[in-house]
Computed example of a mutant assay.
Amino acid sequence: MKTPSSLLVLFLLVAAVATAQSEYEPTEIDPYGTKNPKAPKQLDDFKPLIGMCDCDSERRNPDRTWAKAVKMTWKFKYIMNGMAIQDETLKADGKHSGSIRQFSKDSLKWYVHYYASASPTATLAAWEGNKTDDGRIVLYKPQKAPNGTDGFSRLTFYDITDKGYKWVGEWVDKTETVVFPFWKIACVKREE
Rank of each mutant, 00 (worst) to 15 (best):
G82E: 01
W110N: 02
Y78C: 00
E170A: 13
T156E: 14
W110I: 04
N81T: 02
G164C: 07
K77F: 03
V168W: 02
K105V: 12
K109V: 03
G94P: 03
S99F: 04
W171I: 08
S104G: 09
Y140E: 13
K163C: 04
K131M: 10
R136L: 01
T149A: 13
I85C: 00
N147E: 14
Y111R: 02
S117L: 09
M83H: 02
N130D: 09
Q86I: 00
S117C: 06
T175C: 04
W110C: 02
M80K: 00
Q102K: 15
P120F: 10
D159F: 06
F157M: 04
K166G: 03
W167Q: 02
K77Y: 08
H113E: 05
W127Q: 14
K174F: 05
S153A: 14
Q86V: 00
S117T: 15
T123F: 11
R101W: 14
G82W: 00
K131T: 10
P142V: 11
K77T: 01
D150C: 02
G164W: 04
R101A: 05
T121L: 08
R154N: 05
G82H: 01
D93G: 09
A122L: 13
S97F: 06
S153C: 10
S117E: 06
W110Y: 07
K174Y: 06
E88D: 10
S153E: 12
A116T: 12
T121A: 15
D162W: 03
Y115N: 08
N130Q: 12
Y158L: 12
P142N: 09
K141A: 14
D133W: 03
V138K: 07
P142A: 12
K75Q: 08
L155D: 12
A92Q: 13
V138G: 03
R101F: 08
D87S: 04
E88R: 15
A126H: 06
A116Y: 05
G94N: 08
T161K: 07
V172E: 09
K174S: 09
R101V: 13
I137D: 01
R154A: 06
S97Q: 05
W127G: 09
Y111G: 01
K163V: 08
M83Y: 01
V172P: 05
